[in-house]
């Protein structure tokens, strides 16, 4: 699910939450960081040592809820915008979500905005209660008040008032077609250009695979896909994915095409000894 859509499941989120007792006490950080990547600003940003130092820079961050004050320092430094500060202790049936908001213009305090879930769907209204403009890290933090039932759902806001002020922005947003629900090459149209350099379409690639050419190298030599100036940087993985899909082989067993030096196109005078840059 997460690997395909980028949207964490309810179960994955629940595993990140502190104990009910800690949640009732005050704000806490939730790190919706699920995949190992070389990234550690959160672990070095915490003044309260609530985020354990990482032995390996690829480690997933680990929070000690009892040390976390919910200050938001980590949320402002996370390059993936994956950290949120949740406060369920306010009472009155509402809670607050503090989220990184790298957009202009910033909403105003007291403004009602649309509350958006992880899938980008509007799930209700939210009131902006605090805006930190982000002087040091430049990432502004916006705190919104939402019904308690939505504090683990709402992860972004949409400021529609601002869109209406600028008709060109609103028009552009309306013109953008809905993103495809799948990035699977199998559902792509035959006429899609796969190799942009040589102008080879998906139909030509599929015809060759049907004829029995099932390696990237064979398809490259017959169709020229991958032999243009970009040297298969764009089409190579796409052709391999289509071979894997049509033959039923795992993608990992489809060998990439042969690559030889130079890795970037160079003018011929380079080899003649003129320019050695």
């Amino acid at each position: 699910m997460l690997e395909k859509t980028g949207i964490a499941t309810r179960e994955q989120i629940e595993k990140l939450l502190p104990s009910p007792g800690r949640r009732a006490e005050g704000p806490y950080a939730v790190m919706e960081c699920f995949q190992k990547i070389p990234c550690n600003p959160c672990s070095t940003s915490c003044a309260f040592h609530a985020i354990l130092p990482m032995d390996d820079i690829n480690d997933i961050p680990s929070v000690t809820p009892d040390k976390c004050t919910g200050c938001g320092a980590c949320a402002a430094v996370c390059p993936g915008l994956a950290i949120f500060i949740i406060d369920e202790s306010k009472g009155g049936g509402t809670g607050t979500v503090t989220l990184p908001y790298e957009f202009r213009p910033l909403p105003g305090i007291g403004e009602t905005v649309k509350a958006v879930n992880r899938a980008g769907e509007v799930v209700g209204d939210a009131v902006v209660t605090r805006v930190l403009p982000g002087k040091k890290t430049k990432t502004p933090l916006v705190t919104i008040e939402v019904p308690l039932s939505l504090v683990h759902e709402v992860r972004f806001i949409r400021c529609e008032a601002h869109q209406e002020e600028d008709p060109s922005v609103a028009d552009t947003l309306r013109e953008i077609p809905a993103p495809p629900q799948t990035a699977d090459i199998g559902e792509q149209d035959d006429e899609v250009v796969i190799c942009r350099c040589e102008g080879v379409t998906l139909r030509e690639i599929r015809d060759l695979i049907r004829e029995g050419y099932t390696t990237v190298d064979e398809i490259k030599r017959i169709s020229r896909a991958g032999m243009g100036p970009c040297q298969a940087r764009t089409c190579g993985p796409l052709i391999a994915a289509e071979i894997a899909r049509m033959t039923g082989e795992p993608l990992g067993s489809v060998a990439p095409s042969a690559h030889r030096a130079p890795v970037k196109p160079l003018p011929i005078e380079f080899f003649l000894g003129g320019d050695t840059e």
Partner: peptide
């Protein structure tokens, strides 16, 4: 513009 990082030669 396509890749904008010198890869795609568009």
């Amino acid at each position: 513009f396509y890749c904008a990082i010198g890869n795609c030669s568009s």
